[in-house]
Amino acid sequence: MLVALKAEFRKLFTVRSTYILTGLAILFVIFFAFYIEGYHLSGKDLQNPNLYREDVVGALTSLPTVFGAIVAILLMTHEYRYTTIMYTLTSSNSRTKTLTAKFIAVSVYALVFTAVVGVLAPAMSYLGVHIHGSTLVPQTIDYHSIIWRGIFSGWSYIMAALALAVLIRNQIGAIVSLFAIPIAEQVLSLLLKNNSAYLPFTAQGVVLNPAPHGSTITHGSAAVVFSVYLVIAWIVAWVLFLKRDAN
């Protein structure tokens, strides 16, 4: 198991795409938090006591986290695209060990990524405000709430992307699905109205954002809803990974 884990980490950190996508995510956070939400702030915006919390939410529910999710997708789909899956599977005596190693490696990456992005966003905002010489009103942050919601949101989104990659195996297909499913949910929400909060990525969004208009679902309930979808997706992905031909 440890040898498989070592190999997965080496795979993750020996391809350019990991560095490019993670770097882009960090650059986006720096630009938006430092410049737009920090240096460029003026007047009424500086009176916002929730600015830092909004920075964390913004960073973890937008493009930067998508880049992190694509890193996870590539770790899996490169195996099929470049047929290295045959080496991966014949090096190990169990497909379960192989997938567990991938799950752990991506989980660690997701947690570190979420922590970096989540901390960097308010820090950059603070830096921007202070370099500009402005004064921000004291911030009210419920650390306990924002930490668990932030970590859950970032980690679960990236793990959902990995589950899609295990299920679909095709690089383009997995990335397109990652974008298409939330869009499909938006269309479905026209029909489901208040109940749309129980759709997977809508619920995932509610963990950090307010619930859709008219819905009373709490952040905790939304996390449970998305967890259920995630567990089901992973069970199906796991079974298929064990059963399917490796091509």
Binding site: V3, A4, K6, A7, R10, K11, T14, V15, R16, H78, Y82, T83, T84, M86, Y87, T88, T90, S91, S92
Partner: peptide
């Protein structure tokens, strides 16, 4: 058992040494 089923079974931008290091780690 050592296998060679496809000639181009490697990530194109990962160096040859790193490719083999991954296989060494895994094995």
């Amino acid at each position: 058992i050592g296998i060679l089923l496809e000639a181009k079974a490697f990530h194109p931008t990962r160096t040859a040494r790193q490719h083999l290091r991954i296989l060494a780690d895994a094995g």
